[in-house]
């Protein structure tokens, strides 16, 4: 896909923000409507593919994405442990929605980073 297509890059430039907003909607509304962190993260990860089809230049550094992914996973674990402790000790009762939105956001970020790493690694670095 080294042929640079003006038509493709223009149209992707237009739908790009719409995909991003749809992904964010799926993440933040995941606890009431179909979808959730994983699906929303995958939609945001698909932006990487759209970017690659429009102009194939890497724009996210691998190290940075990997660190964000690792940090997100750690925060997710801490959050889950914290939620278990808080609910069993009955310090805070209720507030499931806040927890769900928070963990969906973290999962979405993690999946988006993971997808970006796979695509980045595969299309830009992997040769024979």
């Amino acid at each position: 896909m080294s042929d640079h297509s003006q038509l493709l890059s223009r149209s992707i430039g237009i739908i790009y923000p719409i995909i991003l907003i749809f992904g964010l909607y799926v993440i933040f509304n995941g606890h009431v409507t179909p979808g959730g962190g994983f699906q929303g993260g995958a939609i945001i990860g698909a932006i990487m593919i759209a970017k690659y089809l429009a102009d194939p230049i890497p724009f996210l550094s691998l190290e940075w994405t990997q660190s964000v992914e690792k940090a997100t996973l750690l925060i997710l674990y801490v959050l889950a442990a914290l939620f278990c402790i808080v609910t069993t000790l009955q310090i805070v009762v209720g507030h499931f929605t806040i927890f769900l939105i928070l963990s969906n956001t973290l999962i979405g970020l993690k999946v988006a980073c993971g997808m970006s790493i796979i695509i980045n690694r595969f299309v830009y670095y992997e040769t024979r």
Binding site: P34, G35, G36, A42, I43, A46, I49, I119, F122
Partner: peptide
């Protein structure tokens, strides 16, 4: 099963198709 459908549509028809074609 709209959750599964969403995941299948994204992974199956977007990500894997483009990855196969790039490969």
């Amino acid at each position: 099963a709209p959750d599964v459908a969403l995941a299948e549509a994204i992974i199956g028809s977007t990500l894997s198709t483009v990855l196969f074609i790039v490969a």
